[in-house]
C-alpha cells in the first residue's frame, strides 16, 4: 500500500514538474516572439508547418468527409433524413474532428521532425554553440516555430473543414445521389459563428501545445542517436495526449459558454 502511494506521489510530482517546465518554456518562447530577429526563421517555419502539411491534411480531410457521409447516410436513411449527412459532416468537423485531426497530423509530421532536429542539435553541441554565440536557443529555435504554428494551424483547420465538406459532397452527390444544392445548404446552414470561433481557438491552442511539447523534448534530449529517437517518441506521445486532453477541457469550457 505504501509503495502504491509513493508511486502515485512520484507520478504526480513528475506531472507537475513537466507542466511547470513546459509552462516556463512557453512563456520564454512567447517573449521571443516579440524580439526583432525572429523574421528570418519565421517564413521557413510557416512553410514547413503550413504549406508542407497541406497535401496530407487535404487528403485525410477529404477522405474523412467521404467516410462520414457513407456511414451516416445508412443510418439516416432509416428515418428519411439522408440530407442531414452534410450537417453531421460540417458540424462535427468544425467543432471537434477538424481541429483534432489536423493537430494529430501536424503532431505526427512536424512534432516528430522538430524534436528530432532540435534533439540532434542538442547532442552535437549546436545548442551550446548558440549560447556561446550569445543567441538564446529558445528564442532562436522555439519562438519562430511557435508563431508559425499559431498562424498556420487555424488556416489548416479551416481548409480541412472545407475539404471534408467537399469530400462528403462527392459521396453525397455522386454515390448517394442527394441534391448538391441541398447538401451544401444543409452543411453550411448549421455552422454558427461560435462554431468557427471554437474551431479556430482549438487549433490555435493545439498548435501551441504541439510546438512546445516537441521543442521541450528536443531541448532535453540526452545521449546519442538513441536519445534523439526516444525524445521524438516522447514528443509525439505527449503532443497526442495534450491535444486530446486540451480538446476535452476546451469543449467543456465552450459547452458552458453561451
Amino acid at each position: 500500500m505504501e509503495n502504491i502511494i509513493t508511486d502515485i506521489g512520484k507520478w504526480v510530482e513528475d506531472v507537475l514538474e513537466y507542466a511547470g517546465k513546459i509552462t516556463i518554456l512557453l512563456i520564454h518562447s512567447i517573449e521571443g516572439i516579440f524580439t526583432k530577429k525572429i523574421s528570418h526563421n519565421l517564413l521557413m517555419q510557416m512553410e514547413e508547418i503550413g504549406v508542407n502539411s497541406f497535401p496530407l491534411v487535404s487528403l485525410i480531410s477529404i477522405f474523412t468527409g467521404m467516410v462520414m457521409v457513407m456511414e451516416t447516410v445508412k443510418i439516416l436513411s432509416k428515418f428519411g433524413g439522408e440530407i442531414f449527412a452534410g450537417v453531421i459532416v460540417s458540424v462535427s468537423m468544425i467543432r471537434e474532428l477538424g481541429p483534432v485531426i489536423v493537430a494529430l497530423i501536424v503532431a505526427g509530421r512536424i512534432g516528430a521532425s522538430i524534436s528530432a532536429e532540435i534533439g540532434s542539435m542538442k547532442i552535437t553541441e549546436q545548442i551550446d554553440a548558440l549560447e556561446v554565440l550569445a543567441v538564446d536557443p529558445v528564442k532562436y529555435l522555439v519562438s519562430p516555430r511557435l508563431l508559425a504554428s499559431m498562424v498556420m494551424m487555424p488556416f489548416l483547420n479551416l481548409i480541412a473543414v472545407f475539404l471534408s465538406i467537399m469530400g462528403g459532397f462527392i459521396v453525397a452527390v455522386y454515390i448517394v445521389h442527394l441534391s448538391p444544392v441541398r447538401y451544401m445548404h444543409q452543411s453550411l446552414d448549421f455552422i454558427t459563428v461560435k462554431d468557427v470561433f471554437v474551431s479556430i481557438t482549438k487549433s490555435f491552442v493545439f498548435g501551441i501545445l504541439i510546438i512546445i511539447a516537441s521543442c521541450f523534448e528536443g531541448l532535453n534530449a540526452t545521449g546519442g542517436a538513441e536519445g534523439v529517437g526516444k525524445a521524438t517518441t516522447r514528443a509525439v506521445v505527449s503532443s497526442f495526449f495534450l491535444i486530446i486532453l486540451s480538446n476535452l477541457i476546451l469543449t467543456a469550457i465552450f459547452y458552458f459558454i453561451k
Binding site: 552535437t124 553541441e125 549546436q126 551550446d128 554553440a129 554565440l133 550569445a134
Partner: peptide, 18 residues
C-alpha cells in the same frame, strides 16, 4: 554579449549549424 565577443569556443564536435 561583450564577454562573448571577447571569447571564442571551439567545440569537440565542431558544432557547426547543419
Amino acid at each position: 554579449l561583450d564577454l562573448r565577443q571577447k571569447t571564442g569556443m571551439v567545440f569537440q564536435s565542431s558544432a557547426l549549424f547543419d
